[in-house]
Design a protein around this nucleic acid. Structure first.
Lengths: 342, 342
DNA sequence: CGGCGAGCGGAGAGCGCTCTCCCGTCGTGC
DNA sequence: GCACGACGGGAGAGCGCTCTCCGCTCGCCG
């Protein structure tokens, strides 16, 4: 294995000192334009690429941002976490983050934390400087990680608000408004008997959708909204709809807290002989690919996840640049996308 | 910002030299068991965490593996790559990789390469030691990246065989066998007029499925298989089925090269008034979540993607450990999962 | 009982980079 | 014409770690 060119090599070729080459490459201080060019030529000639490790040893910057995904149910030795990773949610977030991080020259490193032990290790590694900052995704309710991160004063941004009040920046969707949009649409359609299939009751995003929906319905005179809770999976949507239908056969409208469950609900509705949207109107949430794949295509609440992820990356970078920056939050407004199901 | 404890600090607390602490932590050479304990206590007391940058500066190891995702169609400044990331395919691979890398103490860093320029930059960064090895995923046909990687003698493993012959290790599925499984199933069912919706004709995995299917059909006397090519998306499956049906109204069997397209095909079939599986039997490929979400649930070829990703991680780690290791390939055998659609 | 080798700890170099400090060379103002 | 400041380049320390080399202390054999 031949030795890779170092700054020293470039300096020798360019006939200048290491310091000058470093200055040219990093664009710090003014350097004679002529030398500037000489140096760049030498860089090209030698095929020099800065050594990341050496650089971060002295700058205390790694050029890496960690995406922390928490899966409380999985253990460290759990073979797969397909459940979560297979969800388009994950990919959309990654895509959004990358769109900002890549141009900024930052890498994205995946970190999965299952056990409490893994959390402690993670925070240790991060404090140590494994990465410059953290984007936290999909935490179980009442997770201690956000607190640990702020306590260690690590630059961190959450996607989705924390369940407990913690002074941490986050980007979120106005879930309540989105749910209200769904409610208004169903009511405007003339639905009289509207049901709700919610997500887990202890997840903030889910709670907001529930309260937002209930409140909007109440405001329109619908005091009682029969509901069941699912867990955001296709199957739980199917099961939830079946249960709801059994208890309330006169249902003519349904709000389902995400598209995957809505897709499942559509199946249960069909099995029960209900036509959508004629007998029962269905509104989903997320505007994910499942919404388009469903038949009829889902009327759903659009969730600009990619934009939100990109924004969280921007927030994080700003905070890394200037750690004194205030904790802040950015809330995105959802919109209703009307398709065939309602 | 207070200074983080270094090896030196631990050494002082333990009353030994830096070298000894290093030996204890890395478990190199024998160290007096008593000292061993003293050192670990000191580590605990100081809250010491090794500095990754400093370590990799001297070991030339980063503890990071890159997952390179190539998207020729996207540019460096393309806002999102939702198309790809939103596909469960990506998440399943990540999950499989993590299951091996995490226990091995390796990070996973995401790298996206669009332009040729980005490829060159990537190889430079990698040679430089940005990461210890590379898992290459989803390359466009005739991509030069595999060759660049082998030329730079970087440890690399591909998921899916390279389109051009390149001496690079890879993990793949016996796509032809899988397609043959589908063919046999359709024929055994009594289908007389079987169509094929394939993937892009220049993607190796897709080619293998086409040839495998054709050959198996021919072997059973079905000389002609009407077919159209899609691009693995839901919509292209729907469009493909519609086209096929228009040209060959007597179709009674259909093999679709992935589940997403098959799900789309199911819709087209329904729109055309065909019942599945009674009028037309449909077999998909991948056994992804879409297979279960479809109605009827898809009979499909199971693709153990998580296992394959995990295996590729193992291959890569082995190669990183011993770069002299031969180039190798591991081929997984698919199985048929029979559900409602055929 | 002396010599030799195995085993274990310490000293110190050095990985490749940045950045402070210093020095030389101008341009400018009085 | 001289002092002074501004500016650009070089020397060198040092980031935190690993690892080679060396030396000490044993145990064991002749």
């Amino acid at each position: 294995m031949e030795r890779l060119p170092t700054l020293e090599d470039v300096a020798r070729v360019a006939g200048v000192s290491r310091a000058t080459v470093s200055r040219v490459i990093n664009n710090t201080r003014n350097v004679d334009p002529q030398l500037h060019e000489v140096v760049w030529n030498a860089v090209g000639a030698t095929g020099y690429v800065p050594n990341r490790a050496a650089r971060s040893l002295v700058t205390r910057r790694t050029g890496t941002v960690a995406l922390v995904v928490s899966d409380a149910e999985s253990h460290d030795d759990d073979p797969f976490m397909s459940r979560f990773f297979a969800d388009p949610y994950f990919g959309r977030v990654v895509g959004g983050l990358m769109s900002v991080l890549r141009p900024a020259g930052q890498q994205l490193a995946l970190q999965i934390v299952g056990t409490e032990d893994a959390r402690a290790r993670l925070v240790g590694d991060l404090r140590q400087g494994q990465s410059d900052g953290v984007v936290v995704l999909s935490l179980p309710p009442h997770d201690t990680l956000p607190r640990m991160l702020t306590d260690a004063s690590l630059p961190a941004v959450m996607i989705g608000r924390p369940a407990d009040p913690v002074p941490i920046s986050y980007v979120d969707l106005a879930n309540d408004t989105g749910a209200a949009l769904a409610a208004e649409h169903l009511v405007a359609r003339g639905c009289q008997r509207v049901g709700l299939i919610s997500g887990p009751v202890d997840v903030p995003a889910s709670q907001d959708r529930i309260t937002g929906f209930r409140r909007a319905m109440a405001r329109r005179g619908h005091a009682f909204v029969p509901s069941v809770a699912g867990n955001f999976t296709h199957d739980s949507g199917e099961a939830g709809a079946a249960r709801l239908l059994a208890d309330h056969p006169d249902l003519d409208g349904l709000f389902v807290a995400n598209d995957l469950m809505a897709q499942g609900a559509l199946l249960a509705l069909r099995d029960a002989g209900r036509r959508v949207p004629d007998d029962v109107a269905v509104v989903g949430f997320d505007d994910s690919s499942a919404a388009l794949a469903a038949r009829p295509a889902l009327t759903t609440v659009r969730h600009p996840l990619e934009d939100m992820a990109a924004e969280s990356a921007r927030l994080l970078l700003a905070r890394i640049d200037d750690p004194s920056q205030r904790v802040t939050s950015v809330i995105y407004e959802p919109t209703l996308v009307v398709r065939g199901s309602a």
